[in-house]
């Protein structure tokens, strides 16, 4: 009886431990991206995406404007249909700071800024928003602009990037939060870029968000199975 009680207690304690430290490693969603470019031209893309944090790959299954597949990894991007592998020029992983990875790591509130060389230099608070200012330390701050981050009710609301003169380069807004496994995720992201007095706008909408799914294993665990025809292909114009 005494042993049973000890065993039950051990099971309960271990269960609490694992429950509190649940690891989220897979993210999938249907998406649509609507964009109005600097020239006023409109663009639409739809599809599904599958992100595997362990494998560090994002599998994009596009449906519109054309069916295609793109797999983003740390060092390169695969396009199996075209048999192309495109290496990434930058020696950094943009996957770490993608919205999907930050969400799975529950690090979306400050968009991971607290994990970068950026330092928090100022905090403002008004009626419904807290705005924090982030800058690179030292003399480099003169070369690089600030980032302003706003939160509403403790959740990320907006990001504003400035150039070194203090002009706005871009804005991002994280809207329509939905709870996925009790974790808040913005199902609508608005991005506005500024250039030469003109604006480009993009709205990304996420639907059917699922985390830690056991389906679509071939997409979560993608391994290239083609011989690339080129690693840096020339532009291939699409005939009308």
């Amino acid at each position: 009886m005494h042993l049973k009680g000890l065993l039950l207690s051990a099971i309960l304690i271990l269960g609490c431990f694992f429950a509190s430290g649940q690891i989220y490693s897979r993210f999938q969603a249907d998406f649509s991206i609507k964009e109005i470019g600097f020239d006023g031209k409109q663009n639409l893309m739809t599809g599904s995406l599958y992100y595997n944090k362990v494998e560090r790959t994002i599998y994009y299954d596009f449906e519109f404007p054309e069916e295609s597949v793109m797999i983003v990894a740390d060092t390169c991007t695969y396009r199996p249909k075209e048999k192309v592998i495109t290496p990434h020029k930058m020696e950094v992983s943009m996957i770490d700071f993608s919205i999907y990875n930050l969400f799975l790591n529950q690090d979306l509130d400050f968009y991971g800024l607290n994990e970068t060389p950026y330092e928090l230099t100022e905090v403002e608070e008004n009626t419904d928003m807290v705005i924090s200012t982030w800058e690179l330390p030292g003399k480099q701050v003169k070369e690089v602009g600030k980032i302003l981050l706003s939160q509403k009710k403790g959740r990320l609301y907006g990001l504003v990037s400035l150039d070194k003169e203090g002009n706005v380069i871009s804005k991002q807004f994280f809207l329509d939060y939905d709870y996925i496994e009790n974790l808040p995720f913005p199902t609508r992201v608005v991005q506005i870029s500024y250039l030469g007095g003109q604006e480009s706008k993009k709205i990304t909408t996420y639907r059917n968000v699922i985390i830690n799914s056991n389906d679509h294993k071939e997409k979560y665990n993608y391994t290239p199975d083609f011989i690339p025809v080129s690693s840096s292909p020339a532009l291939v114009p699409v005939g009308k």
Binding site: I33, I58, V72, T77, V84, T86, P87, H88, K89, M90, V92, S93, M94, I95, D96, F97, S98, I99, Y100, Y111, T116, P117, Y118, L136, V144, G145, I147, L159, S161, L162, D163, I169, S170, Q172, V189, Q191, S193, K202, T204, S230, S232, P233, A234, L235, V236
Partner: peptide
Amino acid sequence: GMEFMWEGFLWGFLCCPVGFFV
């Protein structure tokens, strides 16, 4: 397939903020 375009495209696609240094 120009590499130059892919970097910018992916940063915007993954919602990484412009001017965000990793």
